[in-house]
Amino acid sequence: MAVERAPGGTSLIDVLDRILDKGIVIDAWVRISLVGIDLITVEARIVIASIDTYLKYAEAVGITGTISRPAVSSGEGSGSMGSSTPVASRGTVP
C-alpha cells in the first residue's frame, strides 16, 4: 500500500496547526493596533522580537522524550499539558 501525499490545503486541522502561530508572527495585540495605527504618522515601527530557525534533524535516541504520549491507565495523569505551543510570549499584552 503506497501512501498518498495529500496537498496542504486538504486538512483544516493541518492548516490551522501551521498558520495560527508559526512562520512570521505578529503578536495579536500588534495585529489589532496595526489596523488602527498608521505606522508612518505615529512613528512606530515593527521590529524583530525573536528569530528562530529549526534546521536540526532529530537525534535518533531520545527524540520522543519531548513529545508526550497519552497515559494508558486513566488513573495516572499524563501530565501532557505542559509542553504545548509557545503562545506564552503573548503574555505581553498590556
Binding site: 496542504g8 512562520g23 508572527v25 503578536d27 500588534v30 512613528e43 512606530a44 521590529v47 524583530i48 530557525t53
Partner: peptide
C-alpha cells in the same frame, strides 16, 4: 501514515515581531 505537503516552511521559521515607538 498521514502524509501532507508541500507546505511553506511554517515549522522551521519562527520570526516574532513587535511594535516599537520610533525614536527621532
Amino acid at each position: 501514515f498521514l502524509y501532507t505537503g508541500p507546505w511553506p516552511p511554517y515549522n522551521f521559521v519562527n520570526i516574532r515581531l513587535k511594535l516599537e515607538r520610533a525614536e527621532r
